[in-house]
Design a binder for these strands. Structure first.
Lengths: 208, 208
DNA sequence: CCTACCGATCGGTAGG
DNA sequence: CCTACCGATCGGTAGG
């Protein structure tokens, strides 16, 4: 009684294409990934890929668009919601790191997009990155403006607090993605403690 | 009265090859950089490159080896030397960021090496990265052990302090390299302030 | 440092 | 989804 796109293929080729291509782009970069390799992993011939995508560029852009949407969704939900600023920001951190842990190839795809901007990838990618960056920045500005107004964080310029958070998150994600598995597990255990040191750096002085 | 390798070429082709190749590898990745493009920028034909290198792999490994040596040299000198732990660590940060600012392509080359490990690049690269990582880690452990013994930092496990620093530095470098120039300049102005927030997070409680 | 050239692979098309 | 094929480009070699 299940819906099947075809008799002997419960997972559609289109879906598997997305999975396989995301993984390869993430691990080998854009230029390092060939359509032949993607097709081979799907058990089909290279030209058959063109039933699912217009070109290699279009495939990458499509996957990247989906990736940023998923990322943005997770991150927004965690930062919004109830609680103190510390609770909300820690939840946001845990969500971002959880996302990176569970779906490392999606994060890897984003990294590839960022590092290869202006070279072989289309302007569309650069535009999408910039839009996401601006959107995230605005959400952070709102968050820290509110936290300052509540006296929850140190009284420094919002811009600075945004930068501090961004640096911290970028560092965590970098280690999460690039560190060798052995080191990664150790760092993962430290997330809570690293958070507390970060927050200690920006938290308001205890009122006397 | 100057020493010239050839009459009309004051900067040797070998030296220009290193410059050009570093820049291209950093900007386009390993697979995205062709020997033809390198040769073209040098004004010579592709086969002529083989007078200066054995293969594309060997060229990359050679440049990467030089890059890590330069990096390690700068970083070691800044962290050693005199002063309080805070002074030494801030000096180390400034040196690392200065290096990244002045020689962005060298840092980009390292990033490419790290992100493409285990794929098209040789095991030699992975080995070199791992050796550098271990070496840097040991220097940080010594540093934070001493800082803790002096009561200069909060009394938490050295491993945690090392992680916190590493995350902070990785985040700064990531932003330095990947942020769009407009944002980069703003962040650069914040380095000192970001440092003070970081240090505030790990500094020892003021004695009562 | 060059010309001439190699087999392999690239993204992509024609036509079914 | 396939076979058959395209021109372009890849890293690299022979020989001078």
């Amino acid at each position: 009684m299940t819906l099947e796109p075809s008799a002997d293929d419960p997972i559609s080729t289109a879906a598997r294409l997305r999975e396989v291509a995301t993984e390869l782009f993430a691990e080998r970069g854009y230029a390092g990934t060939s359509l032949a390799e993607i097709a081979s992993r799907l058990g089909i011939r290279t030209p058959s890929l063109y039933n699912h995508t217009r070109s290699k560029d279009a495939l990458f852009l499509d996957l990247f668009t989906e990736a940023t949407a998923a990322w943005s969704d997770i991150s927004r939900r965690a930062l919004d919601g109830e609680g103190t600023s510390a609770e909300r920001l820690e939840r946001h951190m845990q969500a971002s790191l959880g996302f990176a842990t569970e779906r490392p190839h999606i994060v890897g795809l984003c990294r590839v997009a960022v590092t290869q901007v202006g070279n072989e990838l289309a302007d569309d990618v650069e535009e999408l990155i910039e839009r996401q960056r601006i959107d995230y920045r605005q959400r952070l500005v709102s968050f820290f403006d509110e936290a300052r107004a509540n006296g929850e964080v140190v009284d420094r310029p919002t811009e600075l607090l945004v930068s501090a958070w961004w640096v911290f998150l970028d560092g965590l994600l970098t280690q999460q993605i690039f560190a060798p598995p052995a080191l990664r597990a150790e760092i993962e255990k430290h997330h809570g403690a690293l958070w507390s040191l970060f927050w200690r750096g920006i938290a308001a002085e205890p009122s006397p």
